[in-house]
Design a protein around this nucleic acid. Sequence first.
DNA 1: CCTACAATGTCATGAACCCGACAATTCGAT
DNA 2: ATCGAATTGTCGGGTTCATGACATTGTAGG
Lengths: 230, 230
Amino acid sequence: MTIVKESPADQQHLAWLARSFGRPDYLPLSPADLKVLSNAGEIIKKYPGTHLFKEGDAATSAFLIREGDVDLYRGPSHQREVVGRVGQGAVIGDIAMFSGQPYISSARAVGHVTAFEFDRDRLLPELARSPAITLRWLVASLTQLERTQRRVLNLMHKTVLAQVAGLLTNEADDRGEVALSQATIATLLGASRQSVNEALNELKRRGQVETGYRLVRVLDVAALSLVAQD
Amino acid sequence: MTIVKESPADQQHLAWLARSFGRPDYLPLSPADLKVLSNAGEIIKKYPGTHLFKEGDAATSAFLIREGDVDLYRGPSHQREVVGRVGQGAVIGDIAMFSGQPYISSARAVGHVTAFEFDRDRLLPELARSPAITLRWLVASLTQLERTQRRVLNLMHKTVLAQVAGLLTNEADDRGEVALSQATIATLLGASRQSVNEALNELKRRGQVETGYRLVRVLDVAALSLVAQD
DNA sequence: CCTACAATGTCATGAACCCGACAATTCGAT
DNA sequence: ATCGAATTGTCGGGTTCATGACATTGTAGG
């Protein structure tokens, strides 16, 4: 088996899209839920490079990923624009399947992938029987919606400085540390590395953060979240 | 009763947010659904200026608006930032209510408002009994999610020219006409009026559109949708 | 320990775009 | 027909930010 090493730029692109498109956090189903829904489809295995579904196909299935990673991309395969990469626990294809629209993007197995394939016609009756799961699904999608809406507002009228401050307050662990390279932060925000560097310098100058190698330490959360509000 | 005349800028701001935040299209429940769910709450009336809920309050209710308009805004009331305006058929407060989070924004009646107030503890059992409605709600939220995600992608790496081209292709009626002022288009896209004007001039120069008073006529859809893709 | 590579710091240049201002025009209402 | 308000067209200044280039510093693997 060939391991394709990806360029850092690609990985960053993914990281950013992961955030902007929001998918990886979208985990509406627990293992217990899956057990209940086991009548609605079956487990499938996919070899690296094969497709779970393709953009434009009629959406008759949704997939819960159990193992491996899947790339979501749009556009023709020769000039594909990757839209996200999702792993264990993520559900994909559900928007198209529930809406009765064709798939919005293509899904391609990166490595070996094990997934549970929900069949539309079998899933709907099962959901009717398990309203609690439907409700959990609804909550997950609403949460994701709220996150994405918040992001739209940020993107539109906030400066890079404010965005960086916001990211740091959100992403800091219990010790106030964020273990990301500046380049990664840049792609997470859809900004350039240089702008992020400049913003971090400004925050450093104000004594609100310290920076290290692949690390930012938050010193003054309060001040930082103030900066984040423009 | 005082009628507060709103500045055009405000209305445009609303129009834009309507689009970016996406709320006004979010109509998950039909009148028939409401009938089924009538046990889950009751009809309330609100006088102009009164609140349906306030940002930060515990979210114990969601509201289906039956008559009148409601402003959604964030931040303290003295410097409120309007986030959207919704009317008949819209459901608000559901994200917070289902997620068990405090309300994300405040909701204030613009004129006289009639709404159906869902009580969380009564709604959940009803939904369990009516899985079809829960499912419809889920589909509505997923559709909205998809729309918002698409918007994030556009905002990040598309120029105003491309965004204008995209808006025109989407918004054109059967005669290829878009009856919006340039200022409105600008706010729909979160751009300045001047930039939109410049973009339209460019498209006019290329012979892809004509412009009139409060009107843009699309002449070459194919070329336009090409421009929209960057 | 040393080397290759990744990450950071810094600069200059230019593009995109916002903002304020103002003239010209179109439209609707009196 | 006329006046006022809304809309369009246009200009220049100023800001933010992307891009490319390059030197410097840190880190991991042999």
